[in-house]
């Protein structure tokens, strides 16, 4: 499979202000991302995640090394139009409605008006933004702005997605929706490189992970490679404590180690979804009652 991103000894240094020493943002780094994979970039603030994305988006020139994006230079216009980039931070023009903003992005991507409008409508529907109507995107909540930015990144039907904190500020449903969309893009052969602080989401979504710290690549690999412990879990239901102790003793007798016995609870998201579902049903009931 052809590489969507191929970087060799890529390094970025920012000139220091005044007499300050230059700041190394990225130490020489090799990177290869193939199509149809989602790669997460993790690391504390200032670790070089955003810098890496900006280099790949063609916004930052590296001081050393080489980088190829979709087989061309990251700064080439033809390449940039095939790459969807969602930067962190607010949307650029706050006094446009979401359809106007997407129409602008579509025009700059060279899409015919009708095609851009159709794609925008599909994306706004999918990302639950149609209800915002003609509201200015500057008045949107953080989550709505994030979803609008994702819609803009997806508008050109890109072959590579570069996403900087795509789910920060989103509610659990929004995060789930974004993750679902990214899985679909992956299935369609799109490569995704996303920086995130949401470790659980990265774990649930990414095929591979890079861990940066101070601009240096500290770890990389698939989740299995990085996280596998060799432990296996047996989840039981319907046994009391005494029965569990007997099972543990049997396990020890067979040479195993019992790491712990703990009550398993559901993920908070399940509770969130159940409560939100009940509330929605309540509202429906209220409306039905009012209608009757």
């Amino acid at each position: 499979m052809t590489a969507a991103i191929s970087a060799r000894q890529l390094a970025v240094t920012f000139a220091g202000r005044g007499r300050a020493a230059p700041v190394r943002a990225l130490a020489p780094l090799d990177l290869e991302v193939t199509r149809g994979r989602i790669v997460g970039v993790l690391g504390p603030n200032g670790s070089g995640k955003t810098t890496l994305l900006r280099v790949l988006a063609g916004l930052q020139r590296p001081v050393a090394g080489s980088v190829e994006v979709l087989g061309g230079a990251a700064t080439a216009r033809a390449v940039q139009r095939r790459v969807g980039y969602q930067p962190e931070g607010p949307l650029p023009i706050g006094v446009l409605s979401a359809p106007e903003y997407l129409a602008y992005v579509g025009a700059e991507l060279g899409l015919p008006d009708a095609e851009a409008d159709a794609r925008a409508h599909r994306l706004l529907t999918r990302l639950d933004l149609l209800g915002a109507g003609r509201r200015w995107i500057g008045t949107f909540s953080t989550g709505m702005q994030k979803r609008t930015a994702l819609a803009a990144a997806l508008l050109g039907d890109p072959e590579l997605l570069l996403l900087d904190e795509p789910t920060s500020g989103l509610d659990p449903f929004g995060s789930e929706l974004v993750m679902q969309i990214l899985r679909e893009r992956k299935a369609a052969g799109c490569a995704v490189l996303m920086a995130s602080h949401h470790l659980l989401e990265v774990e649930a979504l990414c095929d591979e992970v890079l861990v940066l710290q101070g601009g240096v690549l500290r770890a990389r690999g698939t989740l299995d490679e990085l996280l596998a412990t060799g432990d296996r879990a047996l989840v039981l239901r319907g046994l009391d404590d005494r029965a569990l102790q007997e099972l543990a003793a049997a396990a020890r007798a067979r040479g195993g180690e019992v790491v712990g016995i703990e009550a398993k609870h559901r993920h908070l998201f399940a509770l969130f979804r159940r409560l939100a579902g009940a509330e929605a049903a309540g509202h429906r009931g209220d409306r039905d009652g009012a209608g009757a």
Binding site: R54, A57, G58, L59, Q80, Y85, P87, G89, P90, L91, P92, I93, V95, V105, E108, L109
Partner: peptide, 19 residues
């Protein structure tokens, strides 16, 4: 309206990339 009038403004580089 147009962020590139102040290049360090959020969104300015997004527009520069698009234009």
């Amino acid at each position: 309206f147009w962020p590139p009038f102040a290049a360090q403004r959020p969104g300015a580089e997004t527009l520069r990339r698009l234009q």
